Computed example of a mutant assay.
Amino acid sequence: MRRTLRDNGLGIAFGLLFLAMLVGQAFAGQAQYNEQQTATGAEPVSIGRYVTSSPFAVDVVENWQSEYLQFFLYIFGTVWLVQRGSSESKEVDKTGVESDEEQMVGVHARPDSPPWARAGDWRTAVYARSLGLVMGAIFLVSWLAQSVAGQAAYNAEQLGNREDPISWVGYLGAADFWSRTLQNWQSEMLAVGSMAVLAIYLRQRGSPESKPVGAAHGDTSATG
Protein backbone atom coordinates (compact mmCIF):
# COMPACT_ATOMS: atom_id res chain seq x y z
CA MET A 1 0.00 0.00 0.00
CA ARG A 2 2.78 2.41 0.91
CA ARG A 3 4.57 1.75 -2.38
CA THR A 4 1.32 2.18 -4.33
CA LEU A 5 0.73 5.55 -2.67
CA ARG A 6 4.32 6.61 -3.37
CA ASP A 7 4.28 5.51 -7.00
CA ASN A 8 0.93 7.15 -7.69
CA GLY A 9 1.17 10.11 -5.32
CA LEU A 10 0.74 12.82 -7.94
CA GLY A 11 -2.47 11.37 -9.38
CA ILE A 12 -3.91 10.48 -5.97
CA ALA A 13 -3.11 13.87 -4.44
CA PHE A 14 -4.68 15.83 -7.28
CA GLY A 15 -7.65 13.47 -7.39
CA LEU A 16 -8.34 14.10 -3.69
CA LEU A 17 -7.83 17.84 -4.14
CA PHE A 18 -10.28 17.79 -7.04
CA LEU A 19 -12.95 16.04 -4.94
CA ALA A 20 -12.40 18.35 -1.97
CA MET A 21 -12.69 21.46 -4.13
CA LEU A 22 -15.73 20.11 -5.96
CA VAL A 23 -17.48 19.53 -2.63
CA GLY A 24 -16.45 22.99 -1.49
CA GLN A 25 -17.78 24.50 -4.70
CA ALA A 26 -21.08 22.68 -4.21
CA PHE A 27 -21.64 24.08 -0.72
CA ALA A 28 -20.42 27.57 -1.58
CA GLY A 29 -22.54 27.57 -4.74
CA GLN A 30 -25.59 26.40 -2.83
CA ALA A 31 -25.15 29.21 -0.30
CA GLN A 32 -24.85 31.81 -3.07
CA TYR A 33 -27.81 30.34 -4.96
CA ASN A 34 -30.00 30.36 -1.84
CA GLU A 35 -29.08 33.99 -1.17
CA GLN A 36 -30.40 34.82 -4.64
CA GLN A 37 -33.49 32.68 -4.04
CA THR A 38 -34.24 34.48 -0.76
CA ALA A 39 -33.67 37.89 -2.33
CA THR A 40 -36.28 37.15 -5.01
CA GLY A 41 -38.77 35.61 -2.57
CA ALA A 42 -38.20 32.02 -3.74
CA GLU A 43 -37.62 28.97 -1.58
CA PRO A 44 -34.02 27.91 -0.82
CA VAL A 45 -32.92 24.51 -2.13
CA SER A 46 -31.17 21.57 -0.48
CA ILE A 47 -27.60 20.58 -1.36
CA GLY A 48 -28.89 17.50 -3.18
CA ARG A 49 -31.20 19.55 -5.35
CA TYR A 50 -28.51 22.14 -6.02
CA VAL A 51 -25.85 19.68 -7.21
CA THR A 52 -28.33 18.22 -9.72
CA SER A 53 -29.35 21.65 -11.00
CA SER A 54 -28.30 23.33 -14.24
CA PRO A 55 -26.60 26.30 -12.46
CA PHE A 56 -24.20 23.93 -10.69
CA ALA A 57 -23.64 21.82 -13.81
CA VAL A 58 -22.79 24.77 -16.02
CA ASP A 59 -20.40 26.23 -13.44
CA VAL A 60 -18.54 22.90 -13.25
CA VAL A 61 -18.31 21.96 -16.91
CA GLU A 62 -17.44 25.43 -18.17
CA ASN A 63 -14.20 25.13 -16.21
CA TRP A 64 -13.58 21.57 -17.35
CA GLN A 65 -13.88 22.44 -21.03
CA SER A 66 -11.43 25.33 -20.77
CA GLU A 67 -8.87 23.21 -18.94
CA TYR A 68 -9.01 20.44 -21.54
CA LEU A 69 -8.87 22.99 -24.35
CA GLN A 70 -5.66 24.25 -22.77
CA PHE A 71 -4.15 20.77 -22.71
CA PHE A 72 -5.36 19.98 -26.24
CA LEU A 73 -3.83 23.15 -27.73
CA TYR A 74 -0.64 22.82 -25.73
CA ILE A 75 -0.09 19.18 -26.66
CA PHE A 76 -0.50 19.81 -30.39
CA GLY A 77 1.01 23.31 -30.35
CA THR A 78 4.29 22.19 -28.79
CA VAL A 79 4.84 19.76 -31.66
CA TRP A 80 5.61 22.70 -33.93
CA LEU A 81 6.04 25.77 -31.70
CA VAL A 82 9.04 26.35 -29.45
CA GLN A 83 10.12 28.85 -26.80
CA ARG A 84 13.89 29.21 -26.55
CA GLY A 85 15.09 28.81 -22.98
CA SER A 86 11.87 27.27 -21.64
CA SER A 87 11.65 23.88 -19.96
CA GLU A 88 8.12 23.71 -21.38
CA SER A 89 9.44 23.66 -24.95
CA LYS A 90 11.29 21.19 -27.14
CA GLU A 91 14.72 22.18 -28.36
CA VAL A 92 14.39 24.79 -31.08
CA ASP A 93 15.82 22.57 -33.82
CA LYS A 94 13.49 19.65 -33.09
CA THR A 95 10.15 20.95 -34.28
CA GLY A 96 7.77 18.50 -35.89
CA VAL A 97 6.72 14.93 -35.17
CA GLU A 98 10.31 13.57 -35.14
CA SER A 99 11.51 10.36 -36.77
CA ASP A 100 10.28 6.83 -36.04
CA GLU A 101 13.65 6.06 -34.50
CA GLU A 102 13.45 9.01 -32.12
CA GLN A 103 9.88 8.10 -31.19
CA MET A 104 10.66 4.38 -30.86
CA VAL A 105 7.81 3.17 -33.06
CA GLY A 106 7.46 0.33 -35.56
CA VAL A 107 10.75 -1.49 -36.12
CA HIS A 108 12.45 0.93 -33.70
CA ALA A 109 10.19 0.03 -30.78
CA ARG A 110 11.68 -1.50 -27.64
CA PRO A 111 10.55 -4.84 -26.18
CA ASP A 112 8.66 -2.98 -23.44
CA SER A 113 7.04 -0.46 -25.82
CA PRO A 114 3.21 -0.44 -25.91
CA PRO A 115 1.84 -2.99 -28.43
CA TRP A 116 0.29 -0.30 -30.63
CA ALA A 117 3.64 1.52 -30.81
CA ARG A 118 5.21 -1.67 -32.20
CA ALA A 119 2.43 -2.41 -34.71
CA GLY A 120 3.68 0.01 -37.38
CA ASP A 121 0.25 0.40 -39.05
CA TRP A 122 -2.86 2.53 -38.44
CA ARG A 123 -2.78 1.54 -34.79
CA THR A 124 0.58 3.25 -34.37
CA ALA A 125 -0.69 6.35 -36.18
CA VAL A 126 -3.69 6.56 -33.83
CA TYR A 127 -1.69 5.78 -30.69
CA ALA A 128 0.92 8.37 -31.67
CA ARG A 129 -1.78 11.06 -31.39
CA SER A 130 -3.96 9.48 -28.72
CA LEU A 131 -3.18 11.91 -25.90
CA GLY A 132 -4.13 14.98 -27.89
CA LEU A 133 -7.17 13.27 -29.44
CA VAL A 134 -8.56 12.22 -26.04
CA MET A 135 -7.96 15.69 -24.57
CA GLY A 136 -9.72 17.20 -27.57
CA ALA A 137 -12.64 14.79 -27.24
CA ILE A 138 -13.07 15.56 -23.53
CA PHE A 139 -13.00 19.27 -24.37
CA LEU A 140 -15.73 18.90 -27.00
CA VAL A 141 -17.93 16.77 -24.71
CA SER A 142 -17.47 19.23 -21.83
CA TRP A 143 -18.22 22.18 -24.11
CA LEU A 144 -21.36 20.45 -25.34
CA ALA A 145 -22.40 19.76 -21.74
CA GLN A 146 -21.77 23.40 -20.90
CA SER A 147 -24.04 24.53 -23.73
CA VAL A 148 -26.86 22.22 -22.66
CA ALA A 149 -26.62 23.06 -18.96
CA GLY A 150 -26.09 26.73 -19.76
CA GLN A 151 -29.23 26.83 -21.88
CA ALA A 152 -31.26 25.26 -19.06
CA ALA A 153 -29.89 27.72 -16.50
CA TYR A 154 -30.39 30.67 -18.86
CA ASN A 155 -33.97 29.68 -19.64
CA ALA A 156 -34.78 29.24 -15.95
CA GLU A 157 -33.62 32.80 -15.40
CA GLN A 158 -35.58 33.99 -18.42
CA LEU A 159 -38.78 32.39 -17.12
CA GLY A 160 -38.14 33.86 -13.68
CA ASN A 161 -37.99 37.29 -15.32
CA ARG A 162 -41.17 36.53 -17.31
CA GLU A 163 -39.25 36.46 -20.57
CA ASP A 164 -39.33 33.88 -23.37
CA PRO A 165 -36.88 30.96 -23.26
CA ILE A 166 -34.57 30.33 -26.21
CA SER A 167 -33.62 27.19 -28.12
CA TRP A 168 -30.29 25.41 -27.77
CA VAL A 169 -29.17 26.73 -31.16
CA GLY A 170 -30.24 30.21 -30.10
CA TYR A 171 -28.25 29.89 -26.90
CA LEU A 172 -25.11 29.01 -28.87
CA GLY A 173 -25.24 32.51 -30.30
CA ALA A 174 -26.18 34.20 -27.04
CA ALA A 175 -23.87 36.56 -25.18
CA ASP A 176 -24.26 34.47 -22.00
CA PHE A 177 -22.76 31.39 -23.66
CA TRP A 178 -19.79 33.21 -25.16
CA SER A 179 -19.17 35.29 -22.04
CA ARG A 180 -18.94 32.10 -19.98
CA THR A 181 -16.74 30.46 -22.60
CA LEU A 182 -14.30 33.26 -23.38
CA GLN A 183 -13.72 34.33 -19.78
CA ASN A 184 -12.34 30.84 -19.17
CA TRP A 185 -10.43 30.55 -22.42
CA GLN A 186 -8.53 33.80 -21.97
CA SER A 187 -7.37 32.83 -18.49
CA GLU A 188 -6.10 29.46 -19.72
CA MET A 189 -4.16 31.02 -22.59
CA LEU A 190 -2.60 33.53 -20.18
CA ALA A 191 -1.61 30.77 -17.74
CA VAL A 192 0.00 28.58 -20.42
CA GLY A 193 1.84 31.44 -22.08
CA SER A 194 3.14 32.87 -18.82
CA MET A 195 4.30 29.42 -17.63
CA ALA A 196 6.29 28.89 -20.83
CA VAL A 197 7.97 32.32 -20.58
CA LEU A 198 8.51 32.46 -16.80
CA ALA A 199 10.17 29.01 -16.92
CA ILE A 200 12.98 30.65 -18.91
CA TYR A 201 14.09 32.82 -16.01
CA LEU A 202 12.61 31.32 -12.83
CA ARG A 203 13.32 27.96 -11.17
CA GLN A 204 11.67 25.47 -8.83
CA ARG A 205 14.25 23.10 -7.43
CA GLY A 206 13.41 19.44 -7.95
CA SER A 207 10.41 20.03 -10.23
CA PRO A 208 10.34 18.53 -13.74
CA GLU A 209 8.38 21.62 -14.77
CA SER A 210 11.51 23.71 -14.12
CA LYS A 211 15.06 23.70 -15.42
CA PRO A 212 17.84 22.83 -12.96
CA VAL A 213 18.51 25.82 -10.72
CA GLY A 214 21.95 26.39 -12.22
CA ALA A 215 20.90 26.01 -15.87
CA ALA A 216 21.49 28.97 -18.15
CA HIS A 217 18.47 31.01 -19.18
CA GLY A 218 19.07 29.99 -22.79
CA ASP A 219 18.94 26.24 -22.09
CA THR A 220 15.85 24.80 -23.75
CA SER A 221 13.94 21.61 -22.93
CA ALA A 222 16.04 20.96 -19.80
CA THR A 223 14.17 19.76 -16.71
CA GLY A 224 15.21 19.62 -13.07
Rank of each mutant, 00 (worst) to 15 (best):
R2T: 12
N8K: 02
N8S: 01
L17D: 04
L19H: 05
M21Q: 10
G24I: 01
G24H: 02
G29E: 08
A31V: 08
Q37I: 02
A39C: 02
E43V: 01
I47H: 02
G48H: 01
V51H: 07
T52W: 06
T52N: 10
D59G: 06
D59C: 00
E62D: 12
S66E: 09
Y68P: 00
Y68H: 08
F71Q: 13
F71A: 09
L73A: 09
L81F: 13
S86A: 04
S86V: 01
G96A: 01
D100I: 04
E101N: 02
Q103R: 15
V105N: 04
G120F: 09
R123G: 09
A128G: 15
G132S: 06
A137S: 14
S142E: 13
Y154V: 09
Y154H: 15
E157T: 15
N161D: 12
R162L: 09
G170P: 05
Y171V: 04
D176T: 07
F177P: 07
W178C: 03
S179Q: 12
T181K: 01
G193T: 13
M195L: 13
A196Y: 10
Q204G: 00
Q204Y: 07
R205T: 14
P208M: 05
P208V: 11
K211W: 01
G214A: 15
G214S: 15
A215Y: 08
S221L: 03
S221W: 11
